[in-house]
Design a protein around this nucleic acid. Structure first.
Length: 278
DNA sequence: CCGTAACCCTGCGTGC
DNA sequence: TGCACGCAGGGTTACG
């Protein structure tokens, strides 16, 4: 499930493999993957476009093309790119194929079919609601401890769902939210407005530290995430709480709890991450 | 503003 | 061996 560190890893690998290549043509095998424009216009407009750069905003990947066009990709749960030889067998769940001018192919594979593609003029990206409403980038210079403090103070929601709210901060999903709260020693059900200055400072540092570590380890390969060269990440070996229900806490050996919070399964240490008194 | 739930979809684990 | 079922998960949308 590509979150910020996984998408950043994909971005970096694509920068090496497809930047400055030209897309000769594309084939769509699952039309619903392409949200904007129609499949016909998509195929027509993407053909013969040079890839000029690859950027990331939150969990979105932005493939910049010639003539001021941008191909936007959201991987959701199981989407991935595969760079390969055209002769390589087309594996199951391949929904989109781009033929490149160096006789290679970039294939989009997505078991759950939740991922989405958009092809737009670069100044029209606000047509994608998730980009228009996107919150601050955790590595933006404007994201400071004071910024976090200011925006957290009046929110009467639980801290974990807030961390995962893409309108609040961009790029944090279920895995990294659990890991960030563990690092900050904050219970996921604490109300955001109840955090004191010390806790907000810890949370701020933990957001940066955990996301940076995720990038450093090339993302987490839970289930079957791989980058566009088929490389697995190693962050899953560093997880302190996620997917560790019943296993001992790395600090105090207490069994890690799993609980549904805000409709998502959440993992935390009941001792290190104390709940607020009711 | 906040919480809950449905929806999209397939693979996998479980129970029979 | 195999079927039926429920669950997982991100983001969007609907509703109270």
């Amino acid at each position: 499930m590509p979150e910020l560190p996984e998408v950043e890893t994909i971005r970096r690998s694509l920068e090496k493999t497809i930047k400055n290549l030209t897309i000769c043509q594309a084939d769509i095998y699952l039309p619903q993957i392409v949200k904007i424009p129609s499949t016909e216009r998509f195929l027509e407009q993407v053909a013969n476009k040079k890839v000029t750069g690859i950027e990331r905003k939150g969990k979105y990947l932005l493939i910049r093309l010639a003539q001021n066009m941008t191909l936007v990709v959201h991987f959701r749960m199981t989407g991935k790119f595969i760079c390969c030889d055209p002769k390589d067998p087309v594996v199951k769940h391949t929904h989109l194929v781009f033929q490149l001018d160096n006789n290679s192919e970039l294939r989009y594979n997505d078991v759950r079919q939740f991922g989405r593609f958009y092809l737009l003029e670069s100044n029209d990206l606000n047509q994608i609601p998730g980009l228009k409403k996107m919150g601050i980038e955790p590595f933006d210079a404007c994201f400071t401890r004071d910024y976090l403090k200011k925006h957290i103070k009046f929110r009467r929601t639980k801290i974990k769902p807030l961390l995962m709210d893409q309108c609040f901060i961009a790029g944090i999903g279920n895995i990294y939210a659990d890991e960030i709260l563990q690092a900050a020693k904050i219970h996921p059900e604490r109300l955001a407005c109840s955090l004191n200055a010390r806790e907000i400072a810890n949370l701020y540092l933990s957001i940066k530290k955990v996301l940076n570590k995720g990038i450093e380890y090339n993302g987490a390969s839970i289930r079957d995430y791989v980058d566009s060269n088929g490389e697995k990440g190693r962050f899953q070996e560093q997880l302190a709480v996620y997917n560790r229900e019943g296993e001992p806490c790395i600090n105090c050996s207490t069994a890690i709890i799993r609980k549904r919070i805000g409709g998502r399964s959440s993992h935390f240490c009941p001792v290190c991450q104390k709940a607020a008194d009711k």
